[in-house]
Design a protein around this nucleic acid. Sequence first.
DNA 1: TAAACAAGTTTGTAATGCAAACCTATCAAA
DNA 2: TTTGATAGGTTTGCATTACAAACTTGTTTA
Lengths: 111, 111
Amino acid sequence: MSLFKEMTELDKLLHEPARLAIMTALANCESADFTFLQSLTGLSKGNLSSHLTKLEEAGMVFIVKSFVGKIPNTNISLTGSGEDAIKAHWKRLDEMRKEAKTWKPETESAV
Amino acid sequence: MSLFKEMTELDKLLHEPARLAIMTALANCESADFTFLQSLTGLSKGNLSSHLTKLEEAGMVFIVKSFVGKIPNTNISLTGSGEDAIKAHWKRLDEMRKEAKTWKPETESAV
DNA sequence: TAAACAAGTTTGTAATGCAAACCTATCAAA
DNA sequence: TTTGATAGGTTTGCATTACAAACTTGTTTA
């Protein structure tokens, strides 16, 4: 398939900026808690919560709610497929960038 | 600003997959016509049309409608700021990827 | 002259992202 | 001991979006 068709078909779940940030951060630590992710990304609580729910529904992250002493703690980590997916997404973007740099149109329709 | 805050603030106009494809293709040719872009990206006409309108409204592309013989021809090219913007966008993504690879959490909240 | 085609645009709709409001529990002060 | 502030989230409501289907306008072809 052509580079540009591939580009239009990028996985929107992972490509969306907030989720890209969340997933990329999680790819670099075993797990993170809700408040850590919130201050890291600067997202509002509501927004972070809904992105996490979406990622969880897609099987990308694994969410464990517990108590640390008396305060609730929500711990988030990547699932196996989540880890694969975010790595693959960055790899694709990287390859696209490289390929795009050298692409030249072949037809009269693009000069 | 932190890498991940920056990531959540990526320009959505350019980041959206279809427009990323359109802008990246245009960055590699002086101009392209509507049908060329359509077959290149695989987008539907309606979809391509609305993405182009959005890019034009944002001053990213320059659209010229004319006739080639008797058939209408819509020619699209990047504006100066459009060219700067798409190059900068890819550069940021590239830098983010590199930085993300080496990032390590510093707190107890992320293990 | 009717049907098919080309080149787009407009319309309708479901999904999305976001923020504000809400919820539940703890802690501190009066 | 109840009032208020803070922590840690979730739910709700809304404006925007992306997409496809329907429409438009003009041109060939049968």
